[in-house]
Structure formats: C-alpha cells, structure tokens
Nucleic acid binder design. Structure first.
Lengths: 286, 286
DNA sequence: GCAGAAATGGAATAAAAATTCCACATGATG
DNA sequence: CATCATGTGGAATTTTTATTCCATTTCTGC
C-alpha cells in the first residue's frame, strides 16, 4: 500500500502502527489510539462528535490525531477503518458463509469455548426469565439499608463474593470479604451486627463453613441474604431473604455467569436506592 | 423489531421487503432497490451523492426511496445497513440512559438485572465470534504442558483467577493462587520456575502488582500467559502468549462473563490435551 | 391523444459534520 | 522558578452532506 510517507492505507498496518507508537504519544492522542484499537467498529461508523464523546476527548483532538499520523483529516483516517469492513466482507451472503463455516469447522479450545458460551447464554436467559422480581427488590433494599456488607462464599461461590466485594467497594459501600484466610472465617464474620448484612453464597454441595457461619450470624441477629441454587439449601433456614439462582451446566462445570450478573445487578440497584434516599432526605443539588 | 408500521429496523427484513416490493415500484425506485440489494456495502459506506451516482439516480431519489419505505430520510435507512455490520452491539449512550431512567424509578432491580444479562450475552457472543482460535489453542497447550499453574490477578481480575484455581484444582492440576495476602504476592510467585506457567489476568487500568510480578517472573524464565483487554496492556511485553478479551460494559461495570467462559474453556481444553497425551504414551486402558 | 396523477431531475436550502483557530494549561529545560 | 515548546479544550468557521421544493417529464385510464 501507499506507505512511502508512513501513513497506512490499510487497517492492519494502521493498527500495528498505533500499537507501536502509542507509548510515545501525548496523553490524549494515546487515549484515542487505545480507543481506536479497542473499538474499531465505533470509529468506523461514528461521527466525529460521537466518537469523541465515547473516547472522552474533544472533536478537535480526533482531527489532530489523524493529522499527526499523516492523514489530511479525520475523515481520511476513517476511510481506512471503513475499507477494513468493505474488504473483509465483499457481500452479505459471503459474510454469512464465513460465520457459518467458522462455527462449524473450528475445533479444540475454540469449539469448547463456543460450547461454554452457549451454556452461559442459556443460563443467563433462563435465569432472567425465571427469577422473581419481588425477591430481587427485597434483596436490593436489604443491601441498601445495611451499614456494612459481609460477603461469605467458598470454593465455587468465592469468585462471586470477591467480585461483589470489588463492585460494592467501587460503589462506596463498606464491605468485608470473608475469605477464611488462616481459617479465620468465623472470626471475620463476628464483627457483623444487626445493622449489617451478611450475603451468603453457596451452591450444591454446600460448603459447611458457609452454612455454619451464616447460621451463627443469623442466631446473633445479623440479617442474612442467601444466594443459592435450590429450595433445599441449608442456607434457607437462617436467611431473611433468599434469591434462588439456577444455572445451566456443561459437563461437570456449572456456569457462573448468571450469578455474577445477578450479584452485579443487586449491587448497582442497592447503590441507586441509597442515592435516591439520600436525595430525598437532603437534596444537596438540583 | 419495530415493524408495526412495516418499516424494518434490521437488514434481513429490509432486504426481504425490497425483493418483495421491487416489482411494484416505479422505475427509479426499483433501480435503487436493486442496487441496494446487490451492493449493500456501497450503500453502507457511501454518501448520498456517491450512492446516487453509482446507482445512476439523483440524490433526491434516494431520499424519496427511503421515505417511501417509511423512513424519515435516507440516513435512517442507511443506519439499518450499518447496523448489519456493526452486529448491533448495544448502543452505549442509549443503554446508560435506560439504566439511569430505570433506576430513577428506584424499583428496577429486576429490570437492571435484565440489562446486565443483555450486556453479558452480547459480550459473550461477540467474544466468541472475534477471538482468535489459534491463540486459544496455544494457550491451552501452554496450560497443559506446565508443571504447576500460578494464577495472578487483582481487583476485578481476581474473581477470574479464583475461579480458575477452583476449576484447575478440580481437574487435577497443581495450582497456586497468588492472592497477595499480607502483601506476599511477589514472594508467592517466586516459587514458579521455567517448567511452570504464570497466568496473568489484568484489565484497564492495569494493577501495578500484576504487571510487576508478571515481568519479574518472565525475567526469570517463567512462561507467562496473559489474559488482557487491549493490545496496549503492559502485560504484553512479558507474555509468551496473549489472549485478548474485549468485554461489553454497562455503565461503569464491565461484564466478566466472557472472560470466565474463556478461562473455563482453556482449563478444560488443557485437561483434554493432557488426557490425550497420557493415552498416547501409555494407553492404560481401552 | 388528452386530462390527471405519479414520478423524476436538478437547483435551492437546511442541517450536520469536519476542520481550523486561538487562548489557556501543562510539562520540560536551562 | 521563569521560559519556551508542546499539548489541549472549546468556540467559530468552512465544508460537506442530506433534504426539500418545484418545474418538467412520463406514465395511466379514458
């Protein structure tokens, strides 16, 4: 291609150039480079204003970015992005064919990944359609009303708890992740009082630590929110609210996607409730 | 889609409609319909003037054509063509708006969950279609060939690591989860040698501990497999194999579903490779 | 072949987009 | 710590692009 002046006319070269040069670019331009590489589709179809907003820069920055790479303006750079799609899929039917072929004859790790994706999608859709909205609202209110959130979950449930710990912390809630380091799980949970909330996550076969700690906390008057996978879960007796999460599984591996989405939704919903309440009591701003 | 007024919002329906209605259309409009079906890419990327010239009609004819189909103008019709290539990766701003509006009602835990599910599903499908099969195979082989697997990831990446730790352990691989308890992360990683594998997971903004530990390990000759979200990730320089995972996000929260599926698929694929190799060397049983 | 309706071409206009410009901020250098 | 070069945000400007309008042409039914 015409690169005697170092200005790529095809997407792959351009992409490589961006990756190579980004470290030496000024802050905003580097930001644009990252955006362009990460989300080429948005660059392909967006207008300057729209792309600028998504990338968090000014429209003029995009033009300067393109010019610094040797293009005359942003439009010229955008042409390169468009050419990429034009060239790749000369026409519609062919493109469908490619997709069909790709999913059919792949093998090994990639095919397996496809299966996991299918399982996760099934799991997600089904969970969305079967979960009880009322329970979710109760759960969100419980989280919103708590002073601090204690997160309890071992083994397969642990990733869910650690993710919630991350999310809640980001949302500004005091959070304690009971990780049972040094076997101190029960002691970590003892700090929780009736003002707090213990979120217990456990799936078949139920880890005894989780059940024991949840029961002990409930006995001390700590409200317990249980995320679990069966109406027979031993967590139910001690829980104030139970959200039942049934996930699809592929072979021995059960998906976690649904549970994670649920956890996330609960955390964000709780944060929203808090914000709404804060605004009601003291509307600090318009 | 919104077709109560007979105006398709997706390409397939539009295409079918054009084919069906073309015989009854006036000459010039039929000409445009034929052009649109034959060369969708030109319609997708061209300006009104350019398309009009290629199709041999006036610009105004294009506008009338779009309007006769029920669109407000040609641009609206063109959006349908663009959406086809974009594969309808839900619109960021629109979603944020929805999120904000719903939570303003402060009873949207369930609706919010629906949004998270949608985002996760999109993320999964898209990841499945864009990931490079070759990289996945390399990664799986790397995992299969290692003596022990060291898992490194902090903050948002930690749930992924803890899940892999669980899965690998269940599959019988010696596994070390570098959880950085007591700040001992670097020391935990020091046990890894050239026979082992360090799986480093990190997303923007990259946690420095993860990057530092991965670099130190790589310098000592430990192979590093990086799961990360951008070609600008600082993990790339020290990694032997990089699998790039781009997830959709809803508001401030990026989905983890795709990464988890990927992690799981890699673990299981690695286990399969091991089993196959074991059978090849010493077929203990039929 | 003659009215009336529908369709068309092309210029005029309106809208939106890209680009330029400049005052201000930031960071490097002596 | 003052100076200069470089980078940045935002408004102003120019260009491009889509759309509207209307005179003219082409069909349709009688």
């Amino acid at each position: 291609m015409n690169e005697t002046d170092g200005t790529p006319r095809d997407f792959d070269t351009l992409r490589a150039l961006l990756i190579e040069r980004r470290p030496d670019m000024p802050k905003r331009l580097a930001q644009v480079a990252a955006f362009a590489v990460d989300r080429p589709d948005d660059v392909t179809f967006g207008t300057v204003a729209a792309i600028a907003e998504q990338a968090g820069v000014q429209p003029s920055t995009l033009v300067r970015f393109a010019q610094s790479l040797g293009y005359q303006g942003f439009s010229e750079l955008q042409d390169v992005f468009r050419a990429r799609l034009r060239d790749r899929w000369p026409d519609y039917d062919e493109r469908l064919e490619v997709l069909r072929r790709r999913s059919a004859d792949s093998q090994g790790a990639h095919a397996l990944f496809g299966d996991f994706v299918d399982t996760a999608v099934t799991s997600l859709i089904r969970l969305r359609d079967t979960i009880e909205p009322a329970r979710m609202d109760e759960a969100a209110r419980l989280i919103a009303g708590a002073r601090a959130i204690y997160l309890l979950g071992q083994r397969r449930a642990f990733p869910v708890c650690s993710y919630m710990a991350y999310a809640l912390a980001k949302l500004g809630s005091p959070t304690v992740l009971i990780d049972n380091v040094a076997g101190l799980g029960p002691e970590q949970a003892e700090a929780a009082g009736p003002e707090d909330l213990l979120i217990a996550v456990s799936f078949t076969p139920y880890t005894s630590l989780t059940v024991d700690v949840a029961n002990a906390a409930a006995a001390r008057g700590v409200p317990v929110l249980a995320l679990t996978d069966s109406p027979f879960s031993p967590l139910i007796q001690s829980a104030k609210v139970v959200v039942e999460v049934i996930e699809a599984d592929l072979g021995a591996f059960r998906s976690l996607s649904g549970t994670l989405c649920l956890a996330m939704a609960l955390c964000v919903a709780a944060a929203e409730i808090r914000r709404a309440e804060a605004e009601e009591k003291g509307p600090a701003r318009a």
